[in-house]
Amino acid sequence: MNLTISTYCTIYNKKVFLNGEQLHEDLAGEEDFLKALYKKLEIDYSKFYKMDGISRLGLLGVELLKTANHGLLNCEDDEVAMVFQSENGCLESDVNHQLEVNKKSPSPAVFVYTLSNIVIGEISIRNKWYGESIFFIDNFDSNKNLLSYSKSLLLSGKAKKIIAAKIEHFDENVFLSCALIDEEGSMPLTDENLKKVLNTK
């Protein structure tokens, strides 16, 4: 089996890179960058506005992967798996829920986002994907989770395509890097390539 990184995307500092090429540079001055990017990508999915930051970020990253890789659109519904990793997870929603607790009635809509893996749920719902997923908490530099889990899913035939992602959305720290791993690309799936694609800030 010839595993490759076939498409990759990074969003940070109000910049978007798809397969290493910068896109949508005109959005750099937008105050609400993710909302502006959502509009720019002409996604008609009003649930976006209800999501917390990390879910919005993850959803947009996958939308970008889809624009560059139509193979993602033509998968059976349980062939796409998601392997995510974060340092802070859903910390932003945690803080917001904690603020709600002081009110008479805490907001249920805030609480539902206080689990790190909800971003994966939102992407699954949006794309009607029923495949396997997991969310690791680990240091930014570490790629062992993403690499070994993605490999094991593909080699054991549990998935045809993996979206491996590192994601942070807390205060100023907004960062997403994601890679589509399958057999279709030209960049071999190695430690070094994964580092190049996912660890560049």
Partner: peptide, 18 residues
């Protein structure tokens, strides 16, 4: 085995797909 129910953030689907 692991699968996603792909229905709602907190609610399980009526058809129990996941």
């Amino acid at each position: 085995a692991n699968a996603n129910d792909s229905y709602h953030q907190t609610a399980s689907s009526p058809d129990g797909k996941g």
